[in-house]
Structure formats: C-alpha cells, structure tokens
Design a protein around this nucleic acid. Structure first.
Length: 640
RNA sequence: GCCGGUGUAGCUCAGCGGUAGAGCAGCCGAUUCGUAAUCGGCAUGUCGCCGGUUCGAAUCCGGCCUCCGGCUCCA
C-alpha cells in the first residue's frame, strides 16, 4: 500500500493517510492540496497503491485556488449562519481572490460585511475539519431539497451522468462542490472581504440577480496587506482620476456621459501620437482618406449595420431623411473604393483615416477613456486579392508591434479567433484567411491563443488585448478579415484576364482608439510619460525675479529646437516650485539662478534627483536625442 | 440595461431639520528665496436636478441624472 510523494526536489515512498504523512514531515499548514496521478485531491485521504502524489503549496496556482476556494466556503458558511434565508449560488477562486454569489432580497450593507468577516474569523478559529462525501444522484437531490438550495439543484441537474456528486461539510455547513478543499478551516490565516456587487445567476441577464461578495485571502497578513496596498497604488494610477488631474482629458455632465474632452495638455499628447502615427502610415503605403461623420440610413442598411448594430447607433432626421452618426468607418471607405473602376494593379489599396465614431454604449459600461461613446480609431481598410492577404496581414502585424514597442507597451494578449457557427463565405476562403492570419503570427514569432469559433460572422481576426490596471484587458490593435462587405457592396477589381474579381477586405486598427490607448498609457506610466510625448517637457524655475530674463532666454533656446517648455513665475520658494513640477509629472526641471545665468548653464533635475549643472546647449542636445530615440526610461539622461 | 453604493467650493472632505465650513488650489499683499509645501489677508457655492413633507430641507421622502464597484454587453 505504498505511494510516491513529490514536493520540490524531494521524493519519498510513503504509505497510509496523506494528511498524517504531511504532518509527520513537518509540512502541516504549508501543503494546501495535492495532485494525485495528475488529478487534484484533498489531503485527508489514503492514496491508492502505486500512485504518484505531488504536493501543492502556495507557490502553485492550484494550491492558491484550493486555499481561496475554501475561503469562499468559509464566507458562505458565515453568511448562512447570519442570514439563514439566503440561497447559495456558486463560489469559486479567481485570479486574486474568491467570490461567492448569494440570492437574498435585502442588499448586503457595509456593516453586514463586517459582521460576516467576524463570523468568518470565528469559523476559522474553531478550526473545523472539512469533510468530503459523495452521494448517489437521488440522495444528493434529497439533501439539496432538505437544505432548500434550489439553485444548487439546478447545478446538480447539469452534472453529467456517471460523474461523482460530491459535497463538502464543515460544522453544520454543507455545500455541493467538486472540491478539493483544505482539510481544516483554521488553515486560512489572512483574508478580507473587498466588496459586494450584483451578478446575474449563471451570467445570463434574463436570470435573477445575485449579490456577489468578493474577497481575497493570503497565507500571511503581510502578504494580504501588501496586496491591499498594491490595489490602492493601482487606484492612484487610475487614468480616470490621474488623467483628469493632469489635464489629459475630461468629461462634463452637461455634455453627456461617455463624451471625451481634451484640455490643452491632453490634446497635445494626442496630437503627438497622431503625428507619429500619420508619418508611419504614409511610410507604409497607406493613402489618407477623410469621410463624413454622418451618412444616410440607407447606406447603413446596405452595410448591414442597420440590422445588426442599430441599438448601438445614434440617429437623426433632416428633411425627411434618416441619418446615422457613423459607428464605424468602413462604409465610408467602401464608397471611395467604389467611386471608380479598380484594377488589380491598384491593389493592395490601403485607406487610412483617423476616424471618429460614436456608439451608443449602454450606460453601465462606460469607463473613462477605455469605454466611451465617442472615440477616434486609427482605422484602415485594406482592399487586396486573396493572394496578397498573408503579406498584408504580416505587414500590419509588424506595424502593430513596432508601435507598441515605440510606446513601451509589453503587456498584451494576442488572440486568433476562428470560424463561428454562423458565418458567410466559403469554407475554402475561411481556411485560407485563417491560415494567413496564423502564418503571419508565426512569422512574427509571438505567443497567441486561439479562440475557436469566436470570429465575427464575416471573417476570422486577430485581436491584441492591452493590459490595464487590476488585471483589466482592453482590446486595442485588431486585424479582421472581411468577406461580407465586399459582397454586400459588390466590390470588384479588374483581373489580368479581364474578368471582374472580388477583393478581400481587411479592417485594422493599430492602436485601437486614441482614447483607449491614451488611457492605457496614463496607467502604464502613472502619468509620467516618456519625454517625446510629454505635453510639457521642461519646466524652468527661476530662483528669484532677477533670473526671469535668463529663464526666458532658456525657454527661447528650447523652443528653437521644438522642445516644449514653460516658466514657473510664481513668487514662491524653489522647494515649492519643485514640488509642484514633480506632482505635475513634468519630465525635466531646469533651475536657473545666479550661477547658471553667469555661466550660461542650467541645473537639471527629474522627479527623483538632482542631475547637476550643464551647459544649456549640451542639455538641449541630450534632450533632443532622448526625444528622437523615443527613450522610455525616465530616470534622466545621466543614466545613458 | 441590471444590482448596490455615491454626489457639499477647482480638488480632498466636514456638517446630516434652524438657513454652509476647513485644508489645498485661486486672488491681493509682503517675502527674492538653491533641490518635494514662506507668511498674512480676501473671495469662493443653484449643497447633482426636479418634486414632496415641514413654519423651516444640504439634512427627511419620491423620481430622474452623473460617477463608482460589479454583472451583462463590446461589429
């Protein structure tokens, strides 16, 4: 009756109860669960003869999940003790913690949460043993009826025939659950309930709404505190707060929700990004186009947006004609394509537009710059032959990664979405297009995941999700192959053999939208932008009035080289001006006093430290280089 | 859109039935200053909006709106 136990670099041959063995080895409280022959398991069991038992501790994702899943059970246990009328939903571990869904008419208040936390502490200090038991379906149903857990009965119905039906019990709390769990409630040492929010039962908005209590737990209080501090730090970087503080963007209640305004600094930042991107497009053979924001409804009927996207569009009527504000730029570009006869010699044809679109997003989904009702896409539509598809996609991908690199973004998730159940176009063309996307990804050599069946009905696509704060991912770059619109608009080109052929269309955005991208940048840099896109690059601080004249001389010298500077004329002490410049996250601070004036120098500092005194020309040269190189490090040119 | 929370000066917040306050920012004055907050004075408001209760509402009640936490959605 012996089995093999593996932990870190150790291998043992053991027998008997796993939990006992772990205790004897001095690993009690460290080992949270086990993988027996590759399957997750509780600890309080006797492994089968000859099995291989891998021990899981906090350093493994599975170990953390077990710990937090048990935390969720303790939460549910506490809630049932305090509010016996509550019905249980589900309660899994998630990325940074856990949640449990409860059905209850009364909302949980902040005070309730504190009471629940206290009850949880009680349950933990009782150190109840957590036991698994399995029941035949009939008996499981009886038990759940007895417990009056109607939602759990719904879950039971969906457990496939032949699969074991397991329950977990701690004290008088019983829950239908696959497990595994910690062996004792006392093993959860540090936890915190974070908040309550609504969540539809089983994620369907037609179902009743549950109250979801989110929490997190860690092995030690120190780790928990650290996590909570990180959350607070993340909130300080939140683009919605920081972006407004720094004057990057604003919204106004009287203008309407989800409509973005750019004050001067934000507008400067955006223009700098646009300028850079515009030049890159022209270098890469894109042709600029500009299309109206308003087009007649008829056009949107032909494009299919009327049928498929109407509830997200803004409409208006003028002279008995219905118009729609564009939610997308494609129909406009298509009209330009169709305005003349196109030859195969014209292809690929790449139309680029910084196209501002408006989408009527449901009120609850708006989120600062990341999800707005009006935004500007760096949009292009490439019309090409099937043969050109792969090469074009490859070029777009290169472009995408070049841009992300330029802005210093490295955290992204790439997804290739393939043919869904409902689709148009032949299987051959789908296969070809999907292969083209895949080949392009392979040739660039990036990691990507495949979302089987997640493509649009009109074609497969590549999406790049950019990581924001607190695990949020926002779709930025996208490359979508489209077989539908060329069909609907009867797009053609003249082939070498004189026949009319249908082009393929690629919709693509490099950054996604300027709004969303700027939101990501604010959070990525905490408002401390690389020099080349910083709205104000240098703030000049004259020490006393007699240095103002020289400060202007310095400013003019900067302006001559297109460096964006300004002078702080406040009648304040140097310390105060420095503090102000740092809090405004201005990359370089030039201090000018008697010494500097006399010698034609400036003293330079960043938000962290004094870099010393330099000849004005030398500093300007260094800054110009930093701007030209789009340098990302913001610790100052001293660190070259 | 749904569930819950929230809204007072430009910002951060106090006041919670008797008619609006602090700090910072702003303005005025003094100070002319060397690497993260100089001192003094002044002014600041449809207390989110609409309606109701009350002798009296920022405060209590109802509706609407914004924003926040989620869910759903995201061609």
């Amino acid at each position: 009756m012996s089995w093999k136990m593996i932990y870190k670099d150790n291998v043992w041959q053991k027998e008997g109860n796993l939990l006992e063995v772990i205790k004897k080895e001095g690993l009690g409280g460290i080992i949270l669960g086990a993988k027996i022959d590759g399957k997750l398991s509780d600890l309080n069991i006797v492994p089968k003869d000859g099995s291989i038992v891998e021990l899981l501790d906090w350093s493994t994702p599975e170990g953390r999940d077990i710990y937090r899943h048990t935390s969720a059970h303790i939460l549910a246990h506490a809630v049932k003790e305090l509010f016996p009328e509550v019905k249980l939903g589900i309660g899994p571990a998630i990325e940074d913690g856990f949640y449990y869904d409860f059905y209850r008419n009364e909302p949980f208040t902040q005070e309730d949460l504190l009471r629940i936390e206290n009850k949880m502490r009680e349950i933990i200090s009782q150190n109840l043993s957590i036991e698994r038991f399995e029941l035949p379906r009939e008996e499981a149903l009886e038990l759940l009826k007895e417990l009056k857990e109607e939602f759990k009965i719904e879950l039971l119905d969906e457990i496939p025939e032949g699969e074991k039906i397991s329950f977990y019990r701690q004290g008088n709390f019983i829950d239908l659950c696959r497990g595994p769990h910690l062996p004792f409630t006392g093993m959860v040492r540090a936890f915190k309930l974070i908040n309550v929010s609504g969540a539809y039962w089983r994620g369907n908005e037609k179902n009743p709404m549950f109250q979801r209590i989110y929490g997190t737990s860690f092995l030690t209080q120190e780790e928990l505190d650290k996590y909570l501090e990180e959350r607070e730090e993340a909130q300080r970087r939140d683009h919605r707060k920081l972006g407004k503080e720094l004057g990057i963007f604003d919204t106004f209640e009287e203008a309407g929700p989800g409509l973005i305004f750019y004050p001067p600094k934000g507008a400067m930042l955006r223009l700098l990004i646009e300028d850079f991107e515009r030049r890159e497009h022209l270098k890469r053979g894109y042709l600029p186009v500009i299309t109206p924001h308003l087009m007649q409804a008829e056009l949107w009927k032909r494009s299919g947006h009327w049928d498929n996207y109407r509830e997200n569009m803004f409409f208006l009527e003028v002279e008995d004609k219905a118009y729609a504000v564009k939610p997308m730029n494609c129909p406009g570009h298509i009209l330009i394509y169709k305005s003349t006869i196109r030859s195969y010699r014209d292809l690929p044809l790449r139309f680029f537009e910084m196209g501002t679109v408006y989408r009527y997003e449901r009120s609850g989904v708006l989120y600062g710059l990341e999800r707005a009702r009006g935004f500007t896409q760096d949009d292009a539509h490439i019309f090409c032959t099937q043969e050109q598809l792969e090469e074009e996609i490859k070029n777009v991908l290169d472009f995408v990664f070049y841009m992300l690199r330029s802005f210093g973004l490295k955290d992204y998730i790439i997804t290739l979405s393939t043919k869904p159940e409902k689709y148009i176009g032949s299987d051959e063309i789908w296969e070809k297009a999907t292969l083209a996307l895949r080949n392009a990804l392979e040739s660039v050599g990036v990691e990507y995941q495949i979302a089987e069946g997640e493509g649009a009905f009109y074609g497969p696509k590549i999406d790049v999700g950019l990581k924001g704060l607190l695990g949020k991912v926002w779709q930025g770059p996208t490359i979508q192959v489209d077989f539908n619109l060329p069909e609907r608009f009867d797009l053609t080109y003249d082939a070498p053999d004189g026949t009319k052929k249908r082009p393929v269309m690629i919709h693509r955005a490099i950054l996604g939208s300027y709004e969303r991208f700027i939101g990501i940048l604010i959070e990525h840099y905490g408002g401390r932008f690389p020099l080349w896109i910083a709205p104000i690059q240098v703030r000049i601080l004259p020490i006393a009035d007699r240095h103002v004249e020289y400060a202007y001389y310095v400013l003019r010298s900067l302006e001559e080289k297109d460096i964006r500077g300004e002078i702080d004329l406040d009648q304040a002490k140097l310390n105060y001006k420095i503090r102000k410049a740092i809090s405004e996250k201005i990359p370089y601070i030039f201090i000018v006093g008697d010494k500097e004036k006399e010698e034609g120098k400036v003293s330079v500092r960043t938000h962290t430290r004094d870099l010393g005194m330099f000849n004005l020309e030398d500093v300007i040269g260094k800054l110009m280089k930093e701007i030209r190189d789009k340098k990302l490090f913001d610790g100052g040119f001293e660190d070259d």
